[in-house]
């Protein structure tokens, strides 16, 4: 299980659309639009799949790029799906 804090950067006009699409993805929780260009996102996924989640975000229309601000991997946690 990996948890990542991400900054998704998009052009000003694209931000609402991108935020809406991000909300649709099951692994993500969004935390609002900031500084007129970033959407703060927390991704939660099995550690082996986190990269693909980030790739999927990058491929969304309107997304310029994604920064990783925080990453933690908790593969040994009891009761947490791997």
């Amino acid at each position: 299980m990996a948890i990542a804090g991400l900054l998704v950067q998009a052009g000003k006009e694209d931000l609402p659309g991108v935020e809406a699409r991000l909300k649709e993805l099951p692994e993500l929780s969004t935390y609002g639009i900031h500084k007129e260009q970033y959407i703060v996102v927390v991704a939660e996924a099995p550690s082996g799949q986190l990269e693909q989640v980030v790739e999927r975000i990058n491929r969304l229309p309107g997304v310029l790029t994604t920064y990783t601000a925080y990453l933690t991997v908790e593969d040994e946690l009891p009761g947490v799906p791997d």
């Binding site: 948890i3 804090g5 900054l7 929780s29 935390y31 900031h34 925080y70 990453l71």
Partner: peptide, 20 residues
């Protein structure tokens, strides 16, 4: 839960990255 704690840390870190 630990999970919620980690998620809040993650969001906080991202916010700090642009909020400083």
């Amino acid at each position: 839960t630990r999970r919620e704690f980690l998620k809040m840390s993650a969001a906080g870190a991202a916010l700090m990255a642009i909020g400083c």
